[in-house]
Amino acid sequence: MKDATNRPPPLLPLAALDALWFQVAGTLCNLRCRHCFISCAPDNHTFGFMTLTQVRQHLAESVALGVREYYFTGGEPFLNPDIFEMLAAALALGPATVLTNATRFTPANVARLAALRDASSYSLELRVSLDGFTAETNDPIRGPGTFDQAMRGVELLAGAGFLPIITAMRSWDPQQDEAVLAGFREQLTAAGCSRVRLKLLPALRLGAEAKRDHGYGEDEFLTEEMLMGYDPRQLLCHNSRIVSDRGVHVCPILIDQPAGWLGATLAEGLQPARLSHPACTTCYAYGAICSNAGGLGLETARPPGNLPS
């Protein structure tokens, strides 16, 4: 693929494999969110569940590569019947983060998660997607009843001593940020969250989101010039890869895009990333939005200001 000026897209070498992601639930999800960038749904079988054997094999490979941390995503990871064994295997080697819609939690499986957390010296992070602090704002995006279901999940997590990171796509006017964040804080505190941890994400105009709002324009692409003087450590593809039931992809966002495919094995997946997709401009602007620390407010992605007086 070439950009509108007919030049090849920039290539970004993988500096080191710091984070390994697992698309454990494929594109299968119990919800059908209207902003999902890979259109996950109960009937989207584009990618299937990963098996425990596949996960164990990649974990073993990751040790030799010096991987620092693991992420588990989907779809909804807790649909995969082997998710607890997968997390146990990962937590024996390093920290793990699960991206979940929190609608599948029960007292029993949250207690099981807490036992996994307590048995490891590494952090187990749970990132809960919630796209509004009321049913009126969340449910039109995530589906009827999902706000109440997710908040019950958050209550169970908080009750078990977890400090979930609540992730929301900014679907509101940025001028409303303060009011929206205050609303989230109030709701989450009432749900028992002793430390409210919020992560705002920009929209990724792919999949269902491209239909809900709008997709990327033809003039949205990265060039070599744009990367000059840019710190590539802000990009997930600089230090991470994601494995699915099919192979290795450059990042969680481009998993179902031809531009994101790298190969069948982890060794093939270590080749440079081709920053050819329009969605690469979103990460360019906001940094490694998929990682726990990234998101809107990532100051290093903004142009530097004046010297302090």
């Binding site: 010096g66 620092r68 390093g94």
Partner: peptide
């Protein structure tokens, strides 16, 4: 809690 032994080895 977020620094694996594998990463330290590297």
């Amino acid at each position: 809690s977020t620094t694996s032994n594998a990463f330290l080895e590297r």
